[in-house]
Nucleic acid binder design. Structure first.
Length: 635
RNA sequence: GCCGCCGUGGCUUAGCCCGGUAUAGCGGCUGAUUCGUAAUCAGCAGGUCGAGGGUUCGAAUCCCUCCGGCGGCUCCA
């Protein structure tokens, strides 16, 4: 059975002439019209003959599923022999069609175009991504496969052309070394580049051996950063105060950095009209699945990046060559991608996430390449400040062969800058909207890789969105557009930091977050109740996030808990401190398991030490009560 | 989405194979203790055993469906 489903404003047909296999019909069936209809073009095939009932059952299920999905009200069954070169006998075909009609008509308004007639027909396809679907239904396998060549299991989703293209794209993989040489992926000596090996395995050979849960999942909960939210859809997390604090600091930091290079912060809607002509085409070029929502009249989808909003804005702007490069940035809280269930993991892969999305309009390719280099540099620095260093990620650079031929030196420099070999993927032709992109891929405790920062040179969307600038000769010209996410998803940065800490712990180091991101920077532990007041007084001399463990527990227990919370500086306060005015500080970053590094210093010294560590980075106050006795438990 | 494993008070968990409404620790509350660097002691409260259906006199336990989590496939910020 071959099935072509088209969600249409209307379909109408008129019988013209009978063929030798025509079924006898009443006059009233010689023409028909349905509106707001799912048109099902059907070819019954010879393979359906042995078990027509099974075919009927499954095709009915399939049509129903799509009908519900697109919210169609009516169904037109339309025999269409041209879908197959291996048709069943007309007799079987007619009986199958009648059975389908019977099964569906209990629930929907169904019309069946007569079999075996030449018919004229008019159809008005709605044109949203779900509006055109094809299915092959094969007996015995009990599986539905798409005829469009998409992998199995994707047929029920909105599958963009870009997703399909990706499965047919031909990639050539190489390792690019800082000297500019391309090496074979198979023969390259990875002995000094263990992580690159893991990354290459992950990207290409796809062999994975681990069966553990990723460490960050337990950590994000234990540290009360984030958690699953069963009341929402999978992949939509809740963030506790500490998690919100960390996210907020990261968001602020990235916006500050993009502002430094002249990006203008904007805000655009999170939902868009699926039938908007420009967006529809763009949907087809972006490899992601969307959440779709039904509004009163419109069929909307939730954005998966800030591209649309900014491009639509660019379209309406008057831009002079003097304004270039023109940068706009938005922190998308949220971007939505309806990833497949099995792809979701903790904070690594989500269905809603926060991502800085910056776009740069450049006069031409030369300028774009210049900007690309600058932003490559910025991404390295941003991740470094966040706490993810060059050693923690692997670089992937992807480009078309043409681009490579024209820019060999430039590309070699990308490897030189990080001073290590990088993975290269080269396409013999352009499948996507970009000709060049890089990603920084974090390789986690289980040898899984995920992209963080990325910059892409887009040669397609200026045209698609009709974005132009006026050059000095007075002519309107198309800019080249850069897409950039300096840090990648904020949640994924947190995932990276937690995984990195877990890997350190595994190697026998004491795990912690960067001081500027630690929810508590200094914990005061008064020995007895009478020391609380003094602790409070000293804490006021510090200009960072200090809290006081005033609970009625033993000092030992409070120390242990401060350690479990990864507090960078722990200060025990008792009679001695009151006497000599100093504080006894345990410094986590210099401690080893079972060997705390303790230092006696004045409150001023402690404060200036911390100030120098967080200098130039965003700061926010405590996200929770200063006194631990006042804090609720979230987990 | 497909395949596999898993789902017991807020958290970690015993019991499940061989059906008889549940075990312990942490956390919470109350009391005692006011303590100098990785869990002070005692008492109390807290569970429709992920949800729904089925088998049975009886289901946490056996069967089915669904939901959620993890792993694999696939995919990405």
């Amino acid at each position: 059975m071959q099935l072509l489903l088209i969600h249409s404003d209307y379909i109408e047909y008129n019988v013209k002439k009978s063929t030798p296999v025509a079924e006898k019909i009443e006059e009233s069936l010689k023409s028909g019209r349905l509106e707001e209809v799912l048109a099902a073009f059907i070819a019954v095939e010879s393979v359906d003959e042995p078990n027509p009932d099974e075919t009927v059952k499954r095709v009915v299920e399939e049509i129903e599923k799509v009908t519900v999905q697109v919210k169609a009200e009516r169904i037109m069954l339309y025999p269409y022999a041209h879908l197959s070169s291996d048709l069943s006998s007309p007799k079987v075909a007619v009986s199958v069609l009648k059975d389908i009609e019977k099964a569906l008509s209990s629930k929907y308004e169904v019309m069946r175009a007569p079999f075996g007639w030449y018919k004229a027909f008019k159809i008005s396809c709605k044109g949203h991504p779900l509006s055109e679907l094809s299915r092959s239904i094969r007996p015995s396998e009990a599986k539905v496969v798409s005829t469009a060549g998409a992998p199995e299991g994707e047929t029920e989703d909105v599958v963009s052309e870009a997703l399909k293209a990706e499965s047919t794209a031909r990639s050539y993989w190489h390792i690019l070394t800082p000297d500019g040489e391309l090496h074979s992926v198979d023969d390259f000596d990875y002995s000094e580049h263990e992580n690159l090996k893991k990354f290459v395995d992950y990207e290409i050979t796809k062999n994975r051996a681990v069966e553990k849960a990723p460490p960050h999942v337990e950590l994000m909960r234990r540290l009360e950063i984030a958690d699953y939210e069963p009341g929402s859809d999978s992949g939509n997390m809740r963030y506790y105060p500490k998690g919100r604090l960390i996210k907020s600091l990261l968001e602020t930091y990235i916006l500050e950095e993009t502002s430094k290079i002249g990006a203008m912060e904007v805000e655009t809607p999170i939902m868009y009209d699926m039938n908007h002509p420009t967006l529809k085409k763009y949907l087809d070029r972006f490899p992601a699945r969307q959440y779709s929502i039904e509004s009163d009249k419109r069929h909307l989808f939730l954005r998966f990046a800030a591209c649309f909003g900014q491009f639509l804005m660019n379209h309406d702007m008057t831009i002079s060559y003097r304004n270039l490069p023109l940068k706009m940035v938005e922190l998308t809280r949220y971007s939505f991608r309806k990833e497949q269930r099995g792809e979701l993991v903790g904070l690594r892969r989500l269905r809603s996430f926060t991502m800085p999305d910056m776009h740069t309009l450049c006069a031409d390719m030369d300028h774009a390449i210049l900007q690309f280099s600058e932003q490559y540099e910025m991404c390295i620095n941003v991740l470094d400040k966040i706490g993810i260093n060059i050693d923690d990620f692997e670089v992937a650079i992807r480009f078309t062969r043409d681009f490579y031929e024209a820019n060999r030196d430039f590309i070699a420099n990308l490897s030189r800058r990080v001073d290590k070999p990088v993975l290269v993927e080269m396409w013999d032709k352009r499948f996507f909207y970009f000709v060049l992109k890089f990603e920084f891929n974090f390789v986690d405790a289980l040898a899984k890789a995920s992209a963080l920062s990325t910059v892409q040179i887009d040669v397609e969307n200026a045209e698609r969105y009709d974005i132009n600038y006026i050059d000095n000769d007075g002519e309107a010209k198309r800019p080249v557009v850069l897409h950039s996410s300096p840090s990648g998803a904020i949640e994924r940065c947190i995932y990276g930091l937690l995984e990195k800490a877990a890997m350190k712990a595994e190697k026998g180091f004491v795990p912690m977050l960067p001081v500027w991101l630690s929810p508590t920077q200094v914990r005061f532990i008064p020995i007895a109740e009478r020391h609380i007041e003094y602790a409070k007084k000293v804490s006021e001399q510090l200009t960072c996030r200090v809290d006081i463990d005033d609970r009625e527990d033993t000092v030992n227990k409070k120390i242990r808990e401060a350690g479990r919370e990864w507090v960078p500086y722990v200060v025990v306060i008792g009679d001695r401190e009151i006497e000599n005015g100093t504080v006894n500080v345990t410094i986590r970053s210099e401690s080893q398991p079972n060997a705390p590094k303790k230092l006696e210093m004045t409150p001023e010294e402690l404060n200036s030490r911390i100030m120098s560590e967080i200098e130039g980075l965003p700061y926010r106050k405590l996200a929770l009560a200063e006194f631990l006795s006042m804090r609720p438990k979230f987990i």
